[in-house]
Design a protein around this nucleic acid. Sequence first.
DNA 1: CGGAGGTTTGAAGACATTCAAGCCTAGTGG
DNA 2: CCACTAGGCTTGAATGTCTTCAAACCTCCG
Lengths: 216, 216
Amino acid sequence: MTLEAQSQTAGTWPVAFRPYQTNQHQSALSVYRANSEIFGQGEPSGALYRVEFGCVRIGRVTADGRRQLCGFSFAGEVFGWESDEEHRFFAEAVGETGVRVLRPGRDAEASQKLLSLVLTSMRRIQEHLLALGGTKVDERFADFLCEMAERQGDDCLVRLPMPRSDIGDYLGVSFETVSRILRRLKERGIIRIPDTHSVQILDYESLLEISRRKLS
Amino acid sequence: MTLEAQSQTAGTWPVAFRPYQTNQHQSALSVYRANSEIFGQGEPSGALYRVEFGCVRIGRVTADGRRQLCGFSFAGEVFGWESDEEHRFFAEAVGETGVRVLRPGRDAEASQKLLSLVLTSMRRIQEHLLALGGTKVDERFADFLCEMAERQGDDCLVRLPMPRSDIGDYLGVSFETVSRILRRLKERGIIRIPDTHSVQILDYESLLEISRRKLS
DNA sequence: CGGAGGTTTGAAGACATTCAAGCCTAGTGG
DNA sequence: CCACTAGGCTTGAATGTCTTCAAACCTCCG
C-alpha cells in the first residue's frame, strides 16, 4: 500500500488511526512497515517524532530478554522524549505507521509548548503507573481499556491494533492472562469482542469501577 | 525542634536528608511535621515545591480507599508538577520535612531549566513503571533499593525513612510482603538490616541482577 | 491446500495476599 | 527509672490468583 493510497482511504479509519493534519515546518514523512524499528535502545537521541497514522509501541528489553512496554502512541501524538543522550527505550511500528520528525525551536514559546507536551506525556505515564500498582490484573486491563476509549474518543468501540502479547507486556501480565481477562469481562456482560482487534464496551460504568481511575 | 536546631545538626545527617543549600529567590521555608499533608488531591495546583530536608511521599488514594504511591522526594528534589488545574496526587511529609515554594520565571532560560527538571522527574517515573511491570516482587524491591542507593549517593548504606506500608504502596505489594522480601534478601546474604530504617547492601551486583535495571 | 503466527483454553504449580498472632521499640506516665 | 501501651514490624498458615507449559484452534496468506 503506497502513501497515496493511505491518504485516500483515510476517511474510513477510526479517529485515532487517521492521518494527522499538520500545518507547518513539515519534515519528510517516514512510513514504517509492521514491527519495524523506529529507534532502538542505546541509539543517540535528540529528535522528537509525531505519529501521522498507525500506532507505535515504546518499551524496553531487559537483560534477561523480557520486554516491558511503557506506552503506545497514536496519530497526532508525540514521542521520543529523553533526558539522556541515548534512547533508553525502543520504538517500533505496530502496524504500518507514518512518522514525522519534529524540530522544535529553542525560543520561549517553543519551550512552553514543549513543556506542555511533556507534561501530557508524563500524566499518561503516571496513570499507567497507577494501573500497574494495582494487584488485580482485571484492574489493569480495565484501566487500559478506559484509556484507549478516551484517546480514541469513542466510549463504545475501541480498536486494539496491537497483539495480545503487546497488551500483556504493557500491563505486566502474560498474554494468556490478557486473553482470560477478556473472556471474564465478556462473560460478565461488560464487553463484546466483535473481532480480535476490536472491543465493544457495553458497560462503561462497570469498567471504570473495576479500574482504579476514580479518585478518592 | 526549631528550624535553627535543624540547621545546626545538619552536618550529621546522611547526604539525602541534609538541608539543601540554595542561592536565590528564597521563599519562606515551611516545616511539616511527620505525616502531615503538604497538598491534597483535588486542591488547586500551580506552585512547585523543593524539599530542603526530610522526605515527601506523593501518591493517590483510589475510590475504594487503597493507596498508590508514585514517588518519594528527598532534599534538593522538586515536586508538584501538574498538567492540570488541580492536584491529581497528594503530597505528605514522611518524617519532619522542610519545603520551599518555587516561583519559576517565564523566560526562555527558565523554561529550559523547567523542562530539564520535568524530564528528570519523568525519567524516574518511567523507571518506576518498568519496575512495577515486573512479575516478581523481589525484582520490584531490588529496583527500589538500587534507586535509593543511587539517589543517596551511597552504594553501601541506604536509609529508608518511610514505613514498610509506604514501600508496599510504592511497589504495589502488601507491607507483609515487603517484610518477607527483606528477609529473603538477608538470608541470601545480599543485604544486612542494622535497624528497621536502614539497609546495608552487601552485594550490589546481585541486587542489580535481580532488578530489571540492566538493559538488553 | 497447507503452513505460520497469533489466540484461546486447560491443568499444574508457583507465588503473593489475607487474616491472625506474636514481637519489638519508642514514647508515656507513674 | 521502670512498667506499660500503641504502632509498626515480623512471621505463620490458608486461600486465591497468575504464570507456565502444553495443546488445540483459527485465520490470514502464500
